[in-house]
């Protein structure tokens, strides 16, 4: 029953009229003033702004929301920080794969059951601190 479907708009809220003003040659100050701070910037020298917006749908509340629409607006700047070109990446451009489950081990005294029962606020569990994990 679609009536319970909840639409969640996440990330940057695109305003097409403002995007239309971002023609090549626009200064970076104008982009920041009209578009606002980008969702993130390129790990490569901050010379590219990314505005990422997503729409999720959640048919029923217990299911995790499903990504139904994703748009990345990239604004590339030239050396003197003028807009060089724009690029759009849609949901179809995204490569679908499973993220790697392995994680870098961390440490810190794990909250043990005994620790929890003894110390009301679970201060530290008392296990010795082994910096390099298990």
């Amino acid at each position: 029953c679609s009536s319970t479907t909840e639409t969640l708009t996440k990330g940057y809220v695109i305003d097409e009229r403002v995007v239309a003003e971002m023609k090549p040659g626009t200064s970076v100050e104008k982009v920041l003033e009209r578009m606002g701070t980008p969702s993130t910037v390129s790990t490569v020298g901050n010379k590219t702004f990314y505005y990422i917006s997503q729409t999720f749908e959640r048919p029923v509340q217990f299911m995790s929301p499903r990504l139904v629409e994703q748009r990345v607006l990239a604004i590339y700047f030239d050396k003197n920080f003028k807009v060089e070109r724009l690029a759009n990446y849609g949901l179809k451009d995204g490569v679908v794969f499973d993220f790697i489950t392995r994680t870098t081990p961390t440490s810190g005294s794990e909250l043990s059951l005994i620790g929890q029962l003894l110390r009301a606020t679970g201060g530290g569990g008392g296990a010795t601190f082994n910096p390099f994990g298990a």
């Binding site: 390129s42 790990t43 490569v44 590219t48 990314y50 990422i52 994703q70 990345v72 990239a74 990446y89 849609g90 179809k92 451009d93 995204g94 490569v95 679908v96 794969f97 993220f99 790697i100 994680t103 870098t104």
Partner: peptide, 30 residues
């Protein structure tokens, strides 16, 4: 820290999932 390696790999994953391949490549290259 030891986490910087995983952070770069995760950036590759995230950008690839977004479809911004150039960024994914740069992160992996670094």
């Amino acid at each position: 820290t030891r986490h910087v390696e995983e952070a770069l790999q995760r950036l590759t994953e995230a950008y690839l999932a977004l479809g911004v391949v150039s960024e994914a490549q740069t992160a992996a290259a670094v």
